[in-house]
């Protein structure tokens, strides 16, 4: 046993500086496309290439709808000289309209200690794997006062992944109902936002918001650990939100 103690000490500190400082370690995020200025013809071709309809063509170029983008990189690889710009960031969390309305003072209550219940509503395993990484020495969310709890009775935040399958609809509702007020819901991954590649269909809902109210959305397929962390920080108002669709779309529309 002493051997393990010594091994642990020898490993040193690996923890990310995020959120105090940006972490630019290579491979920390798969990145995602961002709004790009493109010729009309290229914009048309790239929009057609997108298998999930996440790219929106407008006059000056292409915008991205992160509710649908699964970063399959088809707009980036083997397309010719002009491709979508790719950002390597990870602060992807967005507040939903519901959260803005509700206006809890979450920061005052949970700013220092927050208990999170994870729920798998039909996720593929990649989202869960990324959420699990939050507990590893690289991310170590305990240092921020975040704890994973096995029971909804102790939970302040429900972190949900997956499109919400038919059989998980009632367990999701019951878990949400079992949580004490005030509570917030973080939907992580494209499936939980829009159904992703699976829904809506005969057996899947089109995301968590179809079943219970959602406060924070974290897009990505899967969102990397720091994106989930950004979403959690956002839920307790300790950081600033990102956007679900890129800017240029708003000015054009």
């Amino acid at each position: 046993m002493f051997n393990w103690f010594y091994t642990g000490l020898k490993a040193g500190i690996r923890t990310t500086p995020y959120p105090k400082k940006a972490d630019m370690a290579p491979g920390i995020s798969p990145g995602r496309p961002r709004a790009t200025r493109l010729d009309a013809q290229v914009a048309e071709a790239l929009t057609m290439r997108c298998p999930t309809g996440a790219l929106i063509k407008h006059q000056g170029g292409v915008d991205v709808d992160y509710r649908h983008c699964v970063h399959c990189a088809r707009c980036r690889r083997n397309t010719g000289t002009q491709v979508m710009d790719w950002s390597q960031d990870y602060d992807w969390g967005v507040l939903s309209a519901h959260a803005e309305r509700a206006g809890h003072r979450f920061r005052d209550i949970f700013g220092r200690s927050l208990h999170i219940r994870f729920l798998d509503a039909g996720a593929c395993g990649a989202c869960m794997s990324e959420a699990r990484q939050l507990n590893n020495p690289y991310y170590n969310i305990h240092r921020l006062g975040f704890f994973i709890t096995p029971t909804p009775r102790d939970a302040d935040i429900l972190l949900v992944a997956g499109p919400v399958t038919d059989a998980m609809r009632i367990p999701l509702q019951k878990t949400y109902a079992a949580m004490p007020e005030p509570k917030r819901v973080v939907a992580m991954g494209v499936c939980a936002l829009s159904g992703g590649v699976f829904g809506p269909s005969f057996i899947s809902a089109g995301g968590v918001a179809d079943v219970i109210p959602v406060d924070v959305l974290v897009p990505g397929c899967p969102p990397p650990p720091l994106a989930i962390l950004h979403g959690l920080l956002l839920a307790v108002e300790r950081t600033m939100p990102s956007r679900l669709t890129t800017h240029a779309a708003e000015t054009e529309a």
Partner: peptide, 25 residues
């Protein structure tokens, strides 16, 4: 913790080589 660190290192390596941590796309 050692296993989880190794896993994260492999995920980052995968992303550096393939552009995605889980080899999608």
């Amino acid at each position: 913790a050692q296993g989880a660190s190794l896993e994260e290192d492999l995920l980052r390596l995968t992303a550096q080589v393939c552009g995605h941590r889980y080899l999608f796309g």
